[in-house]
Design a protein around this nucleic acid. Sequence first.
DNA 1: TATGAATGAGTATTCATTCAT
DNA 2: AATGAATGAATACTCATTCAT
Lengths: 223, 223, 223, 223
Amino acid sequence: MTRAGAERQTVGPKAKRNAERSRRAILDAALVEFSEFGHAGARIDNVAERAGVSKPLIYSYFGDKEDLYTAALREAYVQIRAGERTLDLQSKDPEAAIRALVGFTLDHFRSAPWFISMLNTENLRGGSAIRRIEDVSEIQSPLIDELRKVLRRGEEEGVFRPDVDPIELYITIASLFYFPLSNRHTLSTVFGCAITDEWLEQRRVEAEEMVIRFLRPEPAGRR
Amino acid sequence: MTRAGAERQTVGPKAKRNAERSRRAILDAALVEFSEFGHAGARIDNVAERAGVSKPLIYSYFGDKEDLYTAALREAYVQIRAGERTLDLQSKDPEAAIRALVGFTLDHFRSAPWFISMLNTENLRGGSAIRRIEDVSEIQSPLIDELRKVLRRGEEEGVFRPDVDPIELYITIASLFYFPLSNRHTLSTVFGCAITDEWLEQRRVEAEEMVIRFLRPEPAGRR
Amino acid sequence: MTRAGAERQTVGPKAKRNAERSRRAILDAALVEFSEFGHAGARIDNVAERAGVSKPLIYSYFGDKEDLYTAALREAYVQIRAGERTLDLQSKDPEAAIRALVGFTLDHFRSAPWFISMLNTENLRGGSAIRRIEDVSEIQSPLIDELRKVLRRGEEEGVFRPDVDPIELYITIASLFYFPLSNRHTLSTVFGCAITDEWLEQRRVEAEEMVIRFLRPEPAGRR
Amino acid sequence: MTRAGAERQTVGPKAKRNAERSRRAILDAALVEFSEFGHAGARIDNVAERAGVSKPLIYSYFGDKEDLYTAALREAYVQIRAGERTLDLQSKDPEAAIRALVGFTLDHFRSAPWFISMLNTENLRGGSAIRRIEDVSEIQSPLIDELRKVLRRGEEEGVFRPDVDPIELYITIASLFYFPLSNRHTLSTVFGCAITDEWLEQRRVEAEEMVIRFLRPEPAGRR
DNA sequence: TATGAATGAGTATTCATTCAT
DNA sequence: AATGAATGAATACTCATTCAT
């Protein structure tokens, strides 16, 4: 293969690899930028700089700002779904499975802080972008079905009460960490309550306890 | 002199040139605009139009966009604190007091949706504005002390377990409604779970139950 | 005189005195503001604040910004002309008279720095305001005629050469101080030559010498 | 290849997208605009139009208005320094060298009228911009050292008196033309003394004479 | 005589987006 | 595949000026 030939082959493996690398860099940069400044606050200039590419390249790969934002939002979901898939709830006894989900939720919120920010941003905007995502299966959680099975097993074993909605349970678990993490700054200023790692570890224990207690069958004779 | 008559006198000829009225109109408009579009997305032009005043008036009353935003954020807190002050927790038995707080939290989040949006916006921005608010006492919650007393009474009556931190309890209650309300749009798209009034009423019941169960002393012999 | 009567008498001596005081305060403030920031840079707001009056009062007394500027410019001339009238050139021998004028020029430039600034500003603007001043006699210098007499006397006494134009002489004297004073800031930065009081005193001596040498008849045999 | 042809090639297809050309056009336009209207009076819109570029291009090349102004001020100095470097004082006898400098000063003030205007503007503003210019060597005059040598030579030849400060001499020469040129408009209105080309030619002669006389050693026996 | 309230018409500056190579 | 050069359309903010009392 001559040198000139290699240069000509614009769709060759090398070029493709570069293209893929650029795409990836842009997407990562966009995720950071949008989560840091929101949709209106994000700057295409910054994304280009962070990604180490020129602005026209962004436009040629992703379309306009709205499209780039949508891609970043989708990516945030793709990441959490990938994490969720590594959880193996069915191999654990029901209580342990719930505790594992609680723990994973906290861990992901902390290690991928852009996820919370992207949710905030998207909901501030009324969800206009998420509705436009086409490949919905990518963003839907595989956990709901898993959770349903866990709840059924727990019910059969007599450790969980019946009729718990897996979606609501999923929402409840997310809720317990979302608020303190999302509102770190206001909480620390208003209540002087810094959301430190220690605070969160303590919270993890209490959240597990809270969820488990809530799932337990009502002890006979109470209330 | 009728009440209506008294109001007329104030609204009468002075209506067009009334500093206090203008200030109020601007603040209300800013709260709506900022909560709807976030800090970067909000437009001073829109605020002026909504308030029915000219842009220069906004600048002369509040300073620049950042200052106006800070004033709107403060106002959001002032509103919720005013609501909290109307709760009379000490006149209720401990469990009823907790249920009242749970109910109030949901009601305020729904009736003043800009509160959640402002929190989202401010935390996206890293809390830079809230730290600049000077009269902190206006934004701090009077409920923490009230809650502490309630918890102590509940402990003395044997219905609550000891050592519950009032701030954490307050955060937990807020958490349970904040996530589903704040993430209405993504939840409905991703889980097909519309956060309707019915859903929220159901949630109110479950949240009360959850909090109460969490506060109950561990029944002897369990775990 | 009843109290009510006193209040009614809006054109009475008290009112007039206040009006006169306000006018004066505005004019002084305008002179400072315009000389400090130039025509475009000056702010009516600042003038009002400096003068301790409201903006509408300025408009009612002086008209618009242009008119106020013109009044301030005129005032700058009125002040220097008043100073010039106190010089009594004819009582001095010709050389002393010239030295007195040199000294006065430097002193006025220093004690009324707004004069130089107003000249700068007005000439930057192409002299549009000064041409509109109506009462020209107020701004014309009484010194030209005085100077002409001095030059004639000097010529008759044989200490000055003939045919010196008094206007050009006047310009020359002004020139020697105007440049270093007007360009204080650039000179000190570019040449590291601070225009201090000492520097100026030295300059006064040299300027006197320079002017006198220039006026002297050419010694026979030179050149 | 003819010279014209060479120029064509440069102006040809690249003419529309040529950073250096655009920069130059903006700088020239800024110099004209700022010198014509001062700092506060200058309009970025006008600069863009004069330069034939869009406003954003100005901002991307020069920063904000203040930065553009500073660049224009620097340019004014760069121009006069370039002119000064073409003077070859050492090849002339001392008197001729002084006359050459006097002539050059007048010529530059007339052919580059923005220089005087920029000095006026900058000094009105207190010299805040010139202090920020970093590459000071570009704005400092190479003439001071040249002048020192000339003065020494003149002293040795007995045509100049000793101990003349070159900076002060430089200032004096500038002074003699600066005032009448800078104050053209007020002088013509107040004294009816139009600063025409004839007036200036006459002034050139007198200024030369004045400076030379001032530099001459005091004839023995006078004063 | 005097002013607090209010605004129309700008003016500097920004930013998503496209052009030409 | 990639980018430096360039801009139209906003957007925050200002300021001379007037209104209503």
